[in-house]
């Protein structure tokens, strides 16, 4: 199968899974923005994405996307390290046009995925998973360690409560902000690089894609960050 046996094939898998995750992020940020506007609206979305068959299928596909993207990332990196040879340069001085992100995608990816696990505990373990297990309410205290507020149980459909609880904790907010920064770097390279790998690039579009990637990554990450910060201030 050329998608695993050829170098470009493997990169195509990285690109397509990456673009898929970008698509997911786009939906996710839109959904988050809803929370800023209306609690009911947000909860309606949460209910929609609860333990319904289509949401579950979606979750599985999404998980597969993540899984493939991560496995391929490690696989490619291992091959690339081997291709680099055993001896390393003593002096390395990267040319200016080489983005820092492009050289550190794996590290950025690990940061992104690490904090994503934390995030999954907050918003997936406590919501969709509990719903699957048949629990109707969970204690949101787990989401808001250290926050000096009285916390009670919340419905697994009450995503708004989870957000409010989670971002009431400044440590968690800072951690999420670090996450968004890493994500921003990862996206700035990942976005145009994916299109490049799919062959959708030329001399004219080269800079255009880079600008679009930067703008896009900024909008997405800013969207996420605004929600997190807004809820922190609301909790004060």
């Amino acid at each position: 199968m050329w998608l695993s046996s050829s170098t470009i094939g493997r990169k195509v898998v990285m690109s397509i899974s990456g673009l898929f995750l970008i698509l997911f992020l786009t939906f996710h940020v839109c959904m988050n923005i809803v929370a800023l506007i209306s609690a009911d609206g947000y909860n309606a979305v949460c209910r929609f994405l609860g333990a319904n068959w289509y949401a579950l299928v979606g979750t599985l596909v999404l998980a597969a996307g993540f899984f493939v993207h991560i496995i391929y990332a490690f696989w490619l990196t291992m091959q690339n390290r081997r291709a680099r040879g055993s001896e390393r340069y003593k002096v390395v001085d990267k040319p200016k046009s080489v983005e820092w992100a492009s050289q550190n995608m794996l590290v950025l990816g690990i940061i992104v995925i690490g904090i994503a696990c934390f995030h999954l505990y907050h918003f997936w373990y406590n919501m969709q998973l509990q719903e699957i297990l048949g629990n109707e309410t969970v204690n949101v205290a787990a989401c808001a360690v250290g926050a000096g507020q009285a916390l009670t149980n919340a419905s697994v459909h009450d995503g708004y409560a989870f957000i409010a609880a989670t971002f009431s904790n400044p440590v968690v907010v800072v951690l999420y902000l670090v996450w968004f920064v890493a994500l921003w770097f990862h996206l700035t390279h990942g976005f145009w690089s994916a299109l490049h790998t799919l062959g959708w690039n030329n001399n004219i579009w080269f800079n255009r894609w880079k600008v679009i990637a930067n703008v896009y990554a900024t909008i997405v990450c800013l969207g996420f960050a605004v929600v997190a910060i807004a809820f922190y201030f609301k909790s004060l």
Binding site: L76, S97, E99
Partner: peptide
């Protein structure tokens, strides 16, 4: 034994 391209662009820059 050459590696996979990750579009860092160092090649074209150098």
């Amino acid at each position: 034994g050459f590696g996979n391209c990750t579009n860092t662009g160092a090649c074209a820059a150098e």
